[in-house]
């Protein structure tokens, strides 16, 4: 089996019903596996970081990011391969 590959998803925006549900649905549809989630709601702002196992992902990260942006209009979505965080923040 290939080594597990992860991506980090960041979702920031005004809190609303169903953000987490919609995100999880998009990720599941692309065959991504949610490994870990952390979310903070402060006042009306919603910030979520999600670690996703993309070893079995169907389509590219860009396609998943586009799908998430479409399903979460007005909310900032960033999906990046975990290696960039490994590189920048770990020696």
């Amino acid at each position: 089996m290939d080594k597990q590959e992860n991506a980090v998803l960041t979702v920031v925006g005004i809190n609303d019903v169903g953000i987490l549900a919609k995100t999880a649905l998009c990720v599941a549809e692309a065959k991504g596996n949610v490994v870990q989630v952390s979310q903070i709601v402060m006042d009306k702002f919603f910030t979520m970081n999600m670690l996703i196992d993309i070893t079995e992902l169907e389509g590219s990260l860009k396609e998943l990011e586009d799908a998430l942006k479409e399903s979460l209009p007005g909310i900032e979505v960033h999906l990046m391969h975990e290696n960039i965080f490994n590189s920048m923040h770990r020696i």
Binding site: V8, T10, Q36, I40, T47, N49, E76, E82, F85, H89
Partner: peptide, 16 residues
Amino acid sequence: MYDVKDIMETVSMIRD
């Protein structure tokens, strides 16, 4: 899991 502060720092470096 990565530190939320590190994640947001990287995102903000690129975005802002």
